[in-house]
Design a protein around this nucleic acid. Structure first.
Lengths: 202, 202
DNA sequence: GCTATTTCTTAAACCATGTCATTGGAGTAA
DNA sequence: TTACTCCAATGACATGGTTTAAGAAATAGC
């Protein structure tokens, strides 16, 4: 992560949008003006509990996580965001109320950010972005709904297997503690699952 | 549920939209043309596993549920939809692939439906609907995310309490089997929870 | 208004997962 | 080196939740 912020490329974001709906010259200019690059160091907070979420974050390089800390201090991970994924507390963003969630960097991470006001003005200046963000949220919704379904209908072992199937690469970038926290189980139990699954059969 | 379909009122839907973003005369006409009322009898399917979800459903009166049946035949309820709520398999709707989910009526239910093609043409004819549906999906997304958070971080007892808090009225309309299936526990265990919670303390 | 079917409750045995405590290894900082 | 922290593994034990079964209560169908 040694790029210079000022020359940071907005290309990945433009490519992302183009894959949904083609942008014209004006719209490309709007995106270029309203999104700003920002670098977060490993362990740095992007959003901290009690603050209002004022930015949409698009990850260009690296990995962020969003999580809640419960009364006992346990971390529950709602979402990871790697390259070409979005992350924010949508509830806090729209209601402008304090967030109960944290977002921080698992690796040094480069994001492209747009503020609430800029996003609203983006919608007003080019209604194509209403459509783009509608589609984008719809896709996230489907992913989330599948995950919920898994959670209410599957055992921890099935969820872990399915995690490996869907995100085979992630397993290298995350500690088992992170994976366990995402699956909704304890690290100890995940360790046992792995042990069990590594043995052929018995 | 003795209304005549042909005189069924589209008012609730117009009110719903107006509460998000005010509609002008043209847009009201569009909605009136493209949404069609339909009555489902208790137990009747709105969407059946293996079919493609081709309709957005807005519930005017009654109650629908969306669920998956697993290999053992157990039902897992993803969502209920009562008055002024939407229900559909968004994944199947957009990919036009077969759905793994079922939607059926828990009570006799009146919905207003819009087909895939009509919705697309609605977006094209009035881009305000891109914004309306973006906001609508965003709201659903936040609800879903909170539920997922509950599921990975809370015990069944806490989830049940929270269900009672958030949907106090629903408890009258649903059998405990339905509630248990929504919470992701067995009806037997829910019964035990209820018994435990009804006793003052001990 | 009666019967059949579904739903609710209770309880005992059982299994999935959590808790707590311990150990060892890898990475980092003096 | 030493010390420190973080993470993974493992064992003993505790708890949450399921399974199975059976009876009581409510509801649907005739």
């Amino acid at each position: 992560m040694n790029e210079n912020l000022s020359q940071a490329s907005i290309e990945p974001l433009l490519n992302y949008f183009d894959r949904l709906i083609l942008l014209n010259k004006e719209e490309i200019d709007l995106v270029t003006k309203k999104f700003h690059p920002r670098l977060y160091r490993k362990r740095q907070f992007v959003l901290q509990e009690g603050d209002i979420c004022t930015q949409f974050n698009f990850v260009v390089k690296g990995c962020l996580r969003m999580y809640k800390i419960d009364e006992q201090g346990t971390i529950h991970i709602l979402q990871f965001a790697t390259e070409n994924h979005w992350i924010m507390d949508l509830g806090s963003f729209h209601t402008e109320k304090k967030s109960e969630l944290n977002i921080d960097a698992i690796e040094d991470t480069m994001v492209l950010q747009i503020s609430y006001n800029d996003l609203i003005s983006l919608y007003l200046q080019a209604s194509k972005f209403d459509r783009i963000f509608r589609v984008l949220i719809e896709n996230s919704f489907v992913v989330l709904q599948n995950r919920l379904l898994q959670n209410i209908s599957s055992t921890a072992e099935e969820r872990y297997q399915s995690f490996l199937d869907i995100y085979p690469h992630m397993t290298n970038r995350l500690s088992q503690t992170q994976v366990a926290s995402f699956l909704g189980i304890t690290p100890e139990f995940l360790s046992r699952l792995r042990n069990k699954l590594s043995k052929p059969k018995s």
